[in-house]
Design a protein around this nucleic acid. Structure first.
Lengths: 196, 196
DNA sequence: CCGTTTCCGATGCGCTTGCATCGGAACCCT
DNA sequence: AGGGTTCCGATGCAAGCGCATCGGAAACGG
């Protein structure tokens, strides 16, 4: 058993470098060389971890996808005393990546979203995350008092809305505050409708 | 006055070629050579029309932006006898680019949206189209009976929702039918709320 | 302490990219 | 008819790309 290296740790380290590059230069600006420099490893190491660039990007997408969905799940567990409705609000706010410290993730997410439109493997990876979030939201909305079918419908609408808002904030067509307010109003209408 | 050429016509022709390439290969797959081949002109002609690739892409974005907004406006003028509410539905459906024949435009739109997140000039061009659509929708919603402030709020929400739905359809996480139904349900709730 | 096995840094290769260059075709005016 | 402009197709170029290659460093069993 010769020289051993924690491959998983290295893969994650490289994925982080990929994400950092996407954040500043977009997906097109990601090159193997730049990734290697960012991750502080040699190009050879990158090529050993991932057979192709495509494989590396796919892994990075899964990496960021996990980060986002895990945070959403954590938010549910962390908010015990509140009402189900307010939990939905918090999770939606989390998914929308509106807070400044998540701007990076938002840019990365949007970059992968666009790439997925012409790249089926990436689309598959993305759908996994979306399905997860959708189910989570649907369950929460159901707990807030809606029937299963309408709850799922509202979850889907909510997910699309958050994505759209995120995109609009990113291109500067909407401020973070405006987006938060729109999200809040949408949810208020939802609960109002459910109560009646 | 020597050899003359309709520059505007050529620019539009090249923009169409750019869009066709984005549709199949994404923004990264657009090269000057491929554009020239698609547009059936020489590379020299492309370089004469646009000083840089960046300038060409910017023009193409404006081109497709005009197409979408003009169709939305046309939809308003074309639907005279209906209620204001149903006009909103039609325009929203148009903006969401859900119909199969607009799938191409949807992909192009999403590609530019992602690029705009790391490219301010593109973001500026995009915002122009968004502002236009937002105002149009707000006016229509107002005509349907809402006060100006809520009307604008609903227009913004609706615009974000359509964008999100479009993206979800593109990556195959939502079918066209599902998206249409979600959009319809959202609007139904809106009118119901407005009526009360 | 040396052989074996695993790893990787450096380098090279073939290709594509955006852009610059320029000679000559195309055209209008006189 | 010919000169003066305007245009553009072909070609060249430097840079950057993903990927393949390989010699040697690192770590262990014997």
């Amino acid at each position: 058993m010769p020289k051993q290296v924690d491959h998983e740790e290295r893969r994650r380290r490289i994925a982080d470098a990929v994400c950092a590059l996407i954040d500043t230069q977009g997906l097109e600006g990601v090159t193997l060389r730049d990734v290697a420099v960012r991750a502080e490893v040699s190009m050879g190491a990158v090529q050993r971890c991932f057979r192709t660039k495509e494989e590396m990007l796919r892994f990075a997408l899964g990496h960021i996808g996990e980060r986002v969905t895990e945070r959403a799940h954590a938010r549910v567990l962390a908010g015990p005393a509140q009402s189900a409705a307010s939990t939905v609000g918090h999770v939606a706010g989390e998914v929308a990546l509106l807070r400044d410290e998540h701007r990076t993730e938002a840019r990365i997410w949007l970059a992968f979203l666009a790439a997925a439109a012409v790249n089926p493997p990436l689309a598959t990876a993305l759908r996994t995350s979306y399905a997860d979030l959708e189910t989570l939201l649907a369950r929460l909305i159901e707990q807030a008092g809606l029937d299963p079918a309408p709850a799922r419908r509202e979850a889907r609408t909510l997910l699309a809305l958050t994505d759209g808002l995120t995109a609009h904030v990113l291109i500067g067509h909407r401020t973070t505050t405006e987006a938060e307010e729109l999200l809040h109003t949408h949810l208020a209408a939802l609960w109002h409708r459910a109560g009646a």
